[in-house]
Design a protein around this nucleic acid. Structure first.
Lengths: 212, 212, 212, 212
DNA sequence: AATGAATGAGACTTCATTCAT
DNA sequence: TATGAATGAAGTCTCATTCAT
C-alpha cells in the first residue's frame, strides 16, 4: 500500500466515520426534540430519549456529554432552520415576507411544540439563549426592523417606531405558538391562510377604512 | 362569661386564626411565585421557597400539601388578577379596553415573569390549565371576541374573522410577555405607552392611509 | 382557715386533679389502642390519636412524653386485664380454667386487634416486652404449667412435658388471635363455645377413643 | 458469524443476563427478609437493606420499584416454600403429615422471624395478604381440613368440626412461631421432636386414657 | 463503539416533638 | 392547662452520569 493510498483510505474512513457520527447525533437530537417537546426539559429523562432513539443510555452519553448538550443541540438545529427561512424570503415583497415567515413559524409550531421549551430554558442556559434568542429571534426581528424602516422612510408605512413594530410582529407569531401549545385552536386554517390573515391585520388594521 | 360573649370570642378567635392562616398562605404563594419565576417549576425546590418565605420546609407543607399545590395556588391568584382586570375595563371604549388590558399585562409581566411558567405547566397539570387557560386566557379572548363581533356588525371594524382577530390580539400580548422574559427590551417605554402603540397598530395597521 | 382545713382542701383538690388526669390518660390510651389496632404502631400518627381522643396534639404530649409511652400504656392496661382474668379463674377446675381463659382471649381479640401489635413491638421495646411477655403471657403460661404439673403427678394427665404443653395451649390461643386478625373466620361460634371446643381437643385429642 | 451462532449468542447472553438479574433480586430479597425480620417493615430502611445486600440504595431501586415490592417479594418467596412443604407431605399418613408440617414451620421460624411481619402487613397490603393468607395459610388449612374430614367420616377421628380443628392445628403452629419471635423458648427441642410432641397432643389429648 | 448496571446526590414529603400564646 | 403552628431529622425514590464488559 502506498502512502497516498493510506492517506486516502484514512480520509475515506474518517469521512465515513464522521458521517456515521453525524447521523447518530441527528437521530439523538430528533429523539431529544420529541421528548423535550412532550415532557419539557426537566421531566424528560435521558433514559426515555435513548429509548426513543433506540439506543442505550450509555450510547447517548458517548455522543452528548450531558443532557443539557442535547438541549443546546436542539436549539442549534432550530436556529439553522430559522436562518434558512429568513434566507428564503429575502427576495419577497414585505407583505409576502411577513406572511411566509409567519406561516413557516405556524407550520413548525404545529409539527413540534418547542416554543415554551426554548422560552423556558433560554433564561437558564447561555448556549440556548445564544441559539434561540441571538441566532434565531433577533435575526428575524432585525430583518423585519430594517425592511420596515426603509418602508417608513419611503412613506409606504406610517411613521411608527420600527423597532417596536418589528417586535410586535414577532410577538404575535410567538403568541400564536403559545396558543397552539396551550391547545387553543384558531380554527382549522392552514398555516398559509393564517399567516396571510395576520399579516393583513398588521398592515391594514382592524378599523374600517371608511373611518380613517 | 355569658353565652353571647363566648360565641363572640369564638368567632373572634376563629377569624383571627383564619386571617393568620390566609396571611401565611399568601406569604408562601408570594415566595413560590418568586422562585418559580426565577427557576421554573421543576428546578425550584421546596427548600428554596421555604427559605425565601423565611419558614422551615416543614411549615410550608403544613399549608400546602404538595409542591404542585403551590403552583396551582399561584395560577389561581393570577386568574383572579385577570378577572379583576377584565372587570375594570368593561365600561371603556374598545380602543381603551385593548390598550388598558395590554398595559396591565405588560405591567404584570415586568413585575414577575410567570408567563412561561403557566405556559409550560398548563400542558402538564389540569388545575393549572383550568386557572390559566380557562379562567384567565379564555375570559380575555372571549371578551375581546364579543366586542369585536359587535363592532364588525356595526360596520366599525372590517369584516375579519372575530375569533381569529381576538386570538391575534391576545397572542401579541403573550408574545410581548415572552419577549420580556427573554430579556428582549422594547425600549424603556411605559406599559401604558406600549399598550397604546400596540393597539394603534392593531386598529389602524402599519400601512400608510394614503395607500388604502 | 385552719391548717387542717387547708390540708383537706389541698388533698381534695389533689385528688380531684389526679382523677381528672387519670381520666384524660385513660381517654388517650383508649384512643391510642384504637388507632394502633387499626394502623399498627408505626403508621399510627399522634395527630390521629389526638383527634380520635378529641384533644389537641399538644395536650396529648402533656400526658405522655412520647408516642412510645402511649404504646407502653396500652400494653400495661392489657397486662392488667390478663392479671384479672387469671385471678378470676383460680377457683375453677382445670378444664373450666382452660376454656374460660381461652374464651376471654377470644372475646378480647374480637373487640380489639392488638395481638400483632404487642407481638411486633415486644421485640423492639423493653417496656412493652415487660408488660406483654413477662406480666401477661408468662403469668398465663406459668399458671397453666403448674396446674398441669400437679395433674400429671396425680395421674390425671398423661406424662407429657408440662412446660411444652402449657406453651402449646397458649400458642393455640395466640394463633387464633392471629387468625382473627387476618380475617380468617372460625365460624360464627361464640368465644365461649370456641374456648370449650379447643379445650376439648387439647384434653381429649382428635383421635377416636376406641382406637386408644 | 452465522445466523445460527448469532441466535445462540443472543439467547446465551439473554440467559446470562436473566440469571444475573435473578441473582441480584434474590440477594436483595434475602437482605430485605433479614432486615424486615429484625426491625419490622416500617422501621426497616431501604438504606439498611441496600447496605446489608452490599449495593447502593440506587441499585436497590433498579430491581424493586418500591420498598413495598420488596415486602411482596419476600411474601411470595415464603408462599412458594409453603407450597413445596405441602407438596412434600402429600403421601404421608395424617400423623406424619401434621408432625412434618409443624416441624417445617418451626424450623423456618427459627431461621427467620417473619411471622409477625406477614401477620402485620397482611392487613395493610392486598398483595401480602394474597401470598401469605391465600397462597400459604389457606392452602395448609384446607389440606388439613380435607384429610381430617375423611378421617372423621371413616370413624378414625372423633366427630368434631373439621374446619375448626384444622384451624386449631394451624393456630397452634402459628402461636409457636409467635412464641419463638418473643423469645419464649420451648426447651432446646429439635423442630422434629417438637412437631411430634404437638401432634401427639392434638391427636391423643392430654387427659390420661384411663380416664376416658 | 455499544451496553446497561451501579452509583449517590438531592428532591419531596412525613411526623414526633417543642413551645409561645 | 390546652392549643396547634413551627420545626427539622429522616425516609423513600429519581435520575444524570460513570464505567467495566
Amino acid at each position: 500500500m502506498t502512502q497516498k493510498e493510506e492517506l486516502m483510505l484514512e480520509t475515506d474512513t474518517s469521512t465515513r466515520r464522521e458521517r456515521r457520527i453525524a447521523a447518530r447525533k441527528a437521530q439523538l437530537l430528533e429523539a431529544a426534540a420529541h421528548v423535550f417537546s412532550q415532557k419539557g426539559y426537566e421531566k424528560a429523562t435521558t433514559k426515555e430519549i435513548a429509548e426513543y432513539a433506540d439506543v442505550s443510555e450509555g450510547t447517548l452519553f458517548n455522543y452528548f456529554a450531558t443532557k443539557r448538550e442535547l438541549l443546546i443541540g436542539v436549539a442549534k438545529a432550530y436556529a439553522n432552520e430559522v436562518a434558512a427561512d429568513i434566507e428564503s424570503v429575502q427576495g419577497e415583497s414585505f407583505e409576502d415576507m411577513l406572511a411566509q415567515l409567519a406561516a413557516n413559524r405556524f407550520r413548525r409550531g404545529r409539527e413540534r411544540r418547542l416554543f415554551m421549551l426554548f422560552l423556558y430554558e433560554s433564561r437558564l442556559n447561555a448556549d440556548v439563549h445564544q441559539y434561540y434568542v441571538q441566532e434565531a429571534l433577533h435575526q428575524i426581528i432585525d430583518a423585519l426592523e430594517q425592511r420596515l424602516k426603509a418602508l417608513i422612510e419611503a412613506g409606504v408605512m406610517r411613521p411608527v417606531d420600527p423597532a417596536l413594530a418589528a417586535r410586535m410582529m414577532s410577538a404575535t407569531t410567538m403568541g400564536f405558538a403559545a396558543l397552539f401549545e396551550l391547545g387553543i385552536s384558531v380554527g382549522t386554517t392552514s398555516p398559509e391562510k393564517l399567516g396571510a390573515a395576520v399579516t393583513d391585520i398588521h398592515l391594514n388594521g382592524l378599523r374600517n377604512g371608511s373611518e380613517k
